[in-house]
């Protein structure tokens, strides 16, 4: 059987592809930002002896999320929770929620590691010039930690962007879903999947390129 290439189907879907791409990036960025806030909070809980009662719940959260496939979590939140009587979300909200909770668990580990790797002597020299504990945290610990975890943060952003492909499973109109739409509408299978593969690749690669420059700019810790 002969296959006839027809790239027109891709050009005709440009607006859909652009929307899908923007949606994927937006969902990843939102999950990264909110997930980082969750992760930082959980990491602070785990490193605080005063909040020992909360250590176990936080550990459970991190372990459950990190040991479940993201696709299963996506189905659980979108199909499972409404059946259990929890208010129904539309598919985009549901996916963003899942991805954020997922990112939060990974970020917890990233930030916990970052906090643990800061030598106590930096904080001590902050105290020695008269900074309070709070000031030491905000002006020394936090900025140093962000520089340490920056490479992990950018890896996570790229991973999260690629993970948004799973949103197609609950019909979120992102890039992968658009590819499937072109595929089904036109049967131009090769064009559909080539175009989104190239788009994923181009965006991930440029993202990595930009992030590496930022990392180098802030890589002041040896």
């Amino acid at each position: 059987m002969q296959y006839f290439f027809n790239w027109d189907v891709v050009w005709r879907a440009t607006d859909k592809l652009a929307y899908g791409l923007a949606l994927g990036l937006g969902m990843a960025a939102l999950a990264l930002v909110v997930g980082s806030a969750i992760g930082l909070g959980c990491a602070l809980v785990l490193t605080s002896p005063k909040l020992k009662v909360l250590h176990r719940p936080v550990r459970w959260y991190v372990e459950i999320i990190r040991n479940s496939p993201l696709l299963v979590l996506v189905f659980f939140v979108y199909f499972g929770l409404p059946q259990a009587g929890i208010r129904t979300l539309d598919n985009i909200d549901s996916f963003v929620l899942t991805l954020t909770v997922y990112a939060g668990a990974y970020m917890t580990e990233v930030f916990r590691g970052g906090l643990a790797s800061i030598p106590a002597r930096y904080v001590e020299s902050g105290m020695a010039i008269g900074l309070s504990g709070r000031q030491c945290f905000f002006f020394v610990t936090l900025p140093v930690m962000f520089r340490i975890v920056l490479p992990s943060l950018s890896n996570n952003l790229i991973s999260l962007f690629k993970d948004t492909a799973l949103a197609s499973a609950i019909a979120v109109p992102e890039l992968t879903h658009t590819a499937r739409w072109i595929n089904v509408q036109t049967f131009q299978v090769v064009e559909a999947w080539t175009s989104v593969t190239v788009l994923y690749l181009a965006v991930s690669y440029s993202l990595a390129f930009v992030l590496r420059r930022i990392e180098r700019r802030y890589a002041v810790i040896r």
């Binding site: 020299s125 008269g130 309070s132 040896r222």
Partner: peptide, 20 residues
Amino acid sequence: VVRQRSEIGMVFQSFNLFPH
């Protein structure tokens, strides 16, 4: 204690400059 500490300077063996 924080206020009192600011009246005393300390220099450490390992420098401990803020790396950022």
